[in-house]
Design a protein around this nucleic acid. Structure first.
Length: 774
DNA sequence: CTAGGGTTAG
């Protein structure tokens, strides 16, 4: 039925070929012409065939330069008494003129002459004007001329058709002339329709004029509006408002967007699935899960069609905050609405269960997804990898390995780099390098490409087991093979070298990282700063801080704490103040660790007055003391020799602050009490630990042994030695020093040797024999 | 879906 589309090629054939019309650009631009306003009905009195011959004849006349046009002949063809061109043919003629100057001249001619033959003249002029606009727009930098053309049309009472109006509004907007675009739009009283409003709204939103756009939208949403919103309106509005959030200009709150969605919904118009999903994702990212929940449910309640993806978005967010209750509620809702979960939905559930270490539940879901009729979604490589990783993370790497075989044989799914990375990491983490290495070789054998994660996994495994030099060699080897390290690679190596106090190697690696154009991130800087601060290398740490800032990163609260602590231990109080000031101006709020560090410094120096000031400041800031805060105070009073005060704080923390003391605190007190020769109270603390379920460690026993030795309480010492054996608490060199001296002097070397071999030493328990074997 | 992270009390 679209005659004009059919007739276009025909037109080209019929037309005399001029050099210009042969150019591909011309053909293309001709093709770009829209048809004159779709509101125009074909004139039944003028069959298109006649149109085409008319067009051909007119174009022939218009071939020469404008000034050579023969107006008499033109008039004969177009406006003689018997004939009148169709709007469509005028549009084509004007469009085919190629240059805007010609088109305007022709339009001038038509507007002067068509007026004499109403009533069709309005439509005629509209079409011709539309063609003028289109021609003009094809010429470079022509946007500014548009508004002048519009004014000209207005002076001559040329009515704009829909296409011309839309084109004008959109083009003016794109040229940054939104005001002019709005004027045009507002001066089109009888011509507005949904499409045109959509164009204007889209244009305004693109230019950041949110409120103007919403005003237009408001009119459309009015109950008595002549033209309602449609799905395009919804698309344009919600889509660009969501996109706008990352741009400058008036930001629109999610609340407003949610509100608009519900207004659209009342008109029976809903955002499409990707858009709804995006909205839900944005809401969830901004911690408004409840709003996201409501939006999804509201859309369904109002009758919008919803598929799995917005559900998936919401499920992901709920999974992140481990809200399993609402996850299953949502799954139930899906079922109720007859919406089939897809692979992604299952992936989210399985991932979620794996992350909360509920692997068996995850495996159950996995069984279900292929088993139950109607919900079958074939597990893909991601599902398998998630499960394999989950198994490895809880030490079930053997099962992970079996699942990989199953995915190959039964799942028809080939393992990939990620699959192997997960398994290698799994075996490495439990110290089974052999298997890790085997998998690595197998991976190469099967031609599965290694990536930087593979490299980092292997490096991490080596480093964790103290094989730093092997790790370095391996890294160099891989680099020679063309596999580059990234920020994670350097983080692993740098932290490992810091941990063994090989600071120069750590710094060397840092230099290497900066000199290769390797990716960096804040973490690698943070780790090095931490390592250097702990090593007391504050100048180096400060240097790395400056490098971090140069790279565009900033210090976070932990790094500030690390630095403050470092400067405290070096007694550089001015630097401590400097850091605190910098931290405040950077808007990083001190946390309990910051206060603990300061508290520790002050009270260790015996400055309890200022320590208490810091403590009350901490409370005023609404930061609750932690177990470390109490530990710090207790430690300070112990150092001060004031064990009573320390014990008072200890009792206080249990009863008032309701913070259970930990091993460190017990150790401190036991140590202090024993030094004061108050073994009785120390022993009662040992009982207290047992009651409260706080596990003593080697240091606890060491402190206790010292106190017992002073009072020669051998039998009690034997009991504690048994406790150590039972609890697999290994003696260290301090334990051995104390016991060796004491027990040899007491003639009990045999017991010591039993203890060392992991046997119980108390006489009456000896019969239990093997039970005590370590 | 896979790899790395640092702080305070002993």
């Amino acid at each position: 039925m679209n005659r004009s589309r059919l007739s276009k090629p025909l037109l080209h054939l019929l037309k005399p070929q001029t050099p210009k019309s042969k150019s591909p650009v011309f053909l293309l631009s001709h093709h770009l012409c829209t048809n004159p306003g779709s509101n125009l009905k074909p004139n039944p009195n003028q069959p298109p065939q006649d149109d085409d011959s008319l067009i051909t004849q007119v174009l022939q006349l218009l071939q020469p330069n404008e000034k050579d046009w023969n107006f008499d002949q033109l008039h004969n063809l177009l406006f003689s008494n018997s004939t009148s061109p169709s709007p469509r043919s005028l549009f084509h003629i004007t469009c085919s003129l190629g240059a805007s100057s010609k088109a305007i001249k022709f339009f001038d001619y038509v507007s002067e002459n068509a007026g004499r033959s109403p009533p069709g003249s309005t439509a005629l002029l509209s079409s011709a004007f539309q063609a003028v606009l289109e021609i003009t727009l094809r010429e470079p930098n022509s946007e500014t001329k548009l508004y002048d053309l519009y004014k000209m049309a207005k002076e001559r009472n040329v009515r704009l058709n829909f296409n011309a109006a839309a084109l004008l509004v959109r083009s003016l907007g794109m040229a940054g002339m939104e005001d002019e675009a709005l004027i045009v739009f507002n001066e089109l009283p009888g011509l507005k329709n949904t499409h045109l409003c959509n164009v204007v709204i889209g244009m305004l939103l693109k230019m950041g004029r949110v409120d103007d756009a919403l005003k237009v939208l408001d009119e459309m949403l009015h109950p008595e509006a002549k033209f309602r919103v449609d799905e395009f309106t919804c698309d344009i509005v919600i889509g660009s408002l969501l996109r706008r959030r990352e741009q400058t200009g008036r930001s629109v709150s999610e609340e407003e967007i949610v509100d608009l969605v519900s207004k659209f919904g009342k008109q029976g118009v809903f955002p499409n699935s990707p858009l709804l999903t995006k909205l839900i994702t944005v809401l969830c990212r901004n911690k408004k899960i409840n709003r996201a929940w409501d939006v999804l449910h509201d859309v369904m309640k109002m009758g919008g069609a919803v598929d799995a993806s917005p559900f998936n978005a919401l499920l992901t967010a709920l999974g992140r905050c481990s809200d399993f209750m609402r996850m299953s509620e949502l799954m139930a809702k899906m079922e109720e609405m007859g919406i089939k979960p897809n692979v992604i939905t299952f992936g989210i559930l399985i991932n979620c269960l794996c992350k909360s270490r509920r692997i068996d539940a995850a495996l159950e879901v996995f069984e279900k997804m292929s088993g139950v009729v109607g919900v079958s979604a074939k597990p893909d490589v991601i599902i398998y990898n998630t499960l394999i990783n989950g198994l490895c993370k809880v030490g079930r790497q053997e099962e992970g390995l079996r699942l990989m075989e199953k995915m190959r044989s039964q799942g028809g799914c080939a393992p990939n780099t990620v699959t192997y990375n997960c398994l290698i990491d799994g075996f490495n983490k439990v110290g089974d390098f052999e298997r890790g290495r085997e998998l690595f070789d197998k991976m190469k054998e099967e031609g599965i490409p290694l990536n930087v994660v593979t490299l980092n996994t292997l490096l991490d495994g080596l480093c964790r087991h103290g094989r730093l030099n092997t790790a370095l060699e391996f890294f160099n080897e891989m680099q020679r093979d063309g596999l580059k390290g990234n920020a994670v690679t350097y983080t692993i190596l740098i932290t490992s070298f810091c941990n063994v106090n090989n600071i120069s190697k750590a710094l060397e690696l840092f230099d290497q990282m900066l000199s290769t154009e390797c990716s960096t991130d804040a973490t690698v800087y943070h780790c090095l700063i931490s390592g250097l601060s702990q090593a007391g290398r504050m100048e180096d740490a400060s240097f790395v801080v400056s490098k971090l800032k140069e790279a565009g990163f900033s210090l976070d609260i932990v790094s500030y704490n690390v630095m403050i602590n470092g400067f405290c231990s070096k007694n550089k109080l001015d630097k401590v103040h400097e850091m605190i000031e910098e931290m405040e101006s950077a808007g990083v709020k001190p946390d309990s660790v910051t206060y603990n560090v300061l508290l520790s410094y002050l009270s260790k120096a015996g400055d309890f007055k200022n320590a208490h000031k810091v403590l009350s400041r901490m409370m005023n800031e609404g930061i609750n003391p932690t177990v470390v805060t109490f530990g710090t105070l207790i430690h300070a009073h112990c150092l001060d020799g004031n064990t009573d005060k320390a014990m008072k704080i200890f009792r206080d923390m249990g009863s008032n602050a309701k913070i259970p003391p930990n091993t460190v605190i017990y150790n401190d007190l036991i140590n202090s009490l024993c030094k004061k020769n108050d073994v009785e109270q120390a022993l009662s603390l040992m009982d207290d630990m047992k009651d409260k379920g706080v596990r003593p460690n080697t240091a606890t026993f060491n402190a206790m042994f010292k106190g017992l030795r002073e009072n020669n309480l051998l039998e009690i010492a034997f009991q504690f030695m048994d406790r150590m054996v039972e609890q697999a608490c290994n003696p260290d060199y301090i334990t051995m020093e104390i016991l060796t001296e004491w027990l040899s002097a007491a003639g009990e070397t045999e017991k010591l040797s039993k203890f060392v071999q992991g046997y119980l030493v108390s006489v009456d328990r000896q019969k239990d024999g093997i039970i005590g074997y370590r």
